[in-house]
Design a protein around this nucleic acid. Structure first.
Length: 506
RNA sequence: GGGCCGUUAGCUCAAUUGGUAGAGCUGCGGACUUUUAAUCCGUAGGUUCUGGGUUCGAGCCCCAGGCGGCCCA
């Protein structure tokens, strides 16, 4: 093999002799076509109709019909049956529509037929020009006068009738999309859900904005950030963990109804419901409260279910039904925890007593946890993990909700709710804290925690406080994970709802 | 971070007690002008994830590592 000192990369130009037989043979077919003066990758191919258009135009032909109509169609070869003088191929196009091509010795001639048998593999894109007919078995087909390669595939497709391994599905989503209709359907559903959300917001007079992903200070949530570096500014930057503080700046500025659908990044592990990068919806509305925005959140989800699935009872991946219709259950955190413990727990309950409860129910916990965190962990353990039907849980401990307004009448709790669906947290909503002095006090406390090593604590954001000092109207805000909304509506794991989840390189 | 399980042909998977690494589909050659996961005949395809070790002999046992999954924190 000749040596090319600069340009050759072993990864991208493997020695052909070292390839598995099936890949070597496909490359040889490509070479053979080139040598014969035929491009395996033409810039343009004849195409008068999509496969779907042909199907639509000839939906009810009886078997063994010749229409006399000529079309040119293109598709990926998903099925091949070559016999001596008659070849069949099933072509498929992007939306999954399939149409059969037939090549008969009488119509295409001996050279074209033998070229077809020699050059075409499963997975190739080909075009066929010919008459629309139905086969003796009634299959709608194009009977070729001519055929040609549209794009040669150099890799064999996985076996069509065995499920692809999970790792390959994720690492090579393009293959998953080719062979598994459900993978394409998930993409379609996700797009439709996001579209429905946007339409619901537009119908209510909300404006969509895009706020910084690169931030000099991360805030708006409790999570570890990814750190990156700006060469031009000679400073480290954070990938955002939430858009909250910028969306509130919008509300201060008079964008009274505002939403953003975009990516957040959290420097944490991944599992069946977490991903380091995930799509998030946040919306803020002046003069809303955690009561009104809970109702709106329910409407957004129900509208998405209706527009995408045609109803508010959805069918999940495992075949079970999930009912999102009507009003949803509402609990309070302290009330439902007290009920589960069969003992009164209030914001005044001491840490020692909470620890006894934790020990009694077998919940291991960090001894450094304060009242708020302990209450939340007990609640998740005893109540949250067991919630199946859509449920709002309200009135969280104040100390773990630094951006939330204290309850108007109940001391020690915040006007905050979490929405649980099928046992996981789907969304959270607040009556927003807008008092700049109280906000500064809470963020200063968060800053102290950060300084003492809590790397999930929020940083003091002076510019955000300055914005609040100009006066933010009373407002409600909501955050909802888009990936999790897809999980809720379909029953899929998060790595199926995300097209290209982060994976370690092979 | 801890524990358990997995990693074998292009794909999906076998391989008994440590004793020649197999099947189906796919591929290649052949027959077939109505197939639909066709059928029939023939045939090819392996760094058993990587590196060490034990052994006459390792896919299998031991050690370290990679990647993945599940459970826990």
């Amino acid at each position: 093999m000749p040596s090319y000192p600069c340009a050759v990369n072993e990864e991208t130009t493997p020695d052909v002799d070292d390839l598995p037989e099936q890949m070597r043979i496909r490359r040889e077919k490509r070479e053979r076509m080139l040598a014969a003066g035929v491009s395996p990758y033409p810039v343009e191919v004849p195409r008068t109709h999509s496969l779907a258009e042909v199907r639509a135009a000839y939906s009810d032909l009886p078997a063994d019909t010749a229409t006399g109509d000529k079309v040119s169609v293109v598709g990926r070869v998903m099925f091949l049956r070559n016999t001596g003088k008659l070849c069949f191929a099933t072509l498929r196009e992007g939306d999954g529509t399939e149409l059969q091509a037939m090549l008969s010795l009488n119509n295409v001639g001996e050279d074209a037929l033998s070229a077809w048998k020699a050059d075409v593999d499963l997975g190739d894109h080909v075009f066929v020009t010919g008459e629309v007919i139905t086969s003796r078995r009634g299959e709608l087909s194009v009977l070729a006068d001519e055929w040609g390669m549209a794009a040669k595939s150099l890799r064999p497709l996985p076996v069509a009738h065995k499920p692809l391994g999970e790792e390959t599905r994720i690492r090579q989503r393009y293959v998953d999309l080719i062979v598994r209709p459900e993978a394409r359907e998930t993409v379609r559903v996700r797009s439709a859900v996001v579209r429905s959300l946007r339409e619901s917001f537009h119908a209510r007079g909300f404006l969509e904005v895009e706020t910084p992903m690169l931030q000099t200070l991360h805030g708006g949530a409790s999570a570890r950030p990814f750190v990156t570096h700006s060469n031009a500014m000679s400073m480290d930057l954070y990938l955002r963990i939430a858009p909250e503080l910028f969306l509130k700046r919008c509300v201060v500025g008079g964008i009274d109804k505002v939403f953003e659908i975009n990516r957040n990044f959290r420097n944490e592990g991944s599992d069946s419901s977490h991903s380091p990068e995930f799509a998030m919806l946040e919306f803020y509305e002046a003069f809303a409260t955690y009561d009104t925005n809970a109702a709106m959140t329910r409407e957004l989800i129900q509208e998405a279910a209706r527009s995408v699935f045609g109803g508010e009872v959805v069918t999940l991946d495992d075949g079970s039904e999930y009912d999102l219709s009507g009003e949803w259950t509402t609990l309070t955190m302290y009330g439902s925890l007290s009920e589960a413990l069969e003992a009164e727990v209030t914001p005044e309950t001491g840490v020692d007593e909470l620890r006894k409860h934790a020990a009694a129910v077998g919940l291991e916990h960090d001894p450094a946890l304060g009242h708020g965190k302990l209450v939340e962990e007990l609640w998740e353990h005893l109540v949250g993990d067991h919630l199946h039907a859509p449920t709002f849980v309200r009135d969280f401990p104040v100390e773990t909700s630094p951006l939330t307004r204290e309850h108007r009448s109940k001391p020690g709790v915040a006007e905050k709710w979490d929405l649980y669906v099928r046992g996981f947290e789907l969304a959270t909503g607040y009556s927003e804290l807008v008092d700049p002095v109280e906000e500064r006090r809470r963020l200063t406390e968060q800053g102290r925690r950060a300084a003492s090593g809590d790397d999930e604590a929020m940083r003091l954001d002076e510019d955000f406080l300055r914005a609040l000092e100009y006066g933010m109207p009373p407002s409600g805000g909501v955050g909802m994970g888009i990936d999790r909304l897809l999980m809720a509506l379909t029953g899929l794991g998060i790595r199926e709802t995300i097209l290209f989840p982060l994976v370690r390189p092979e």
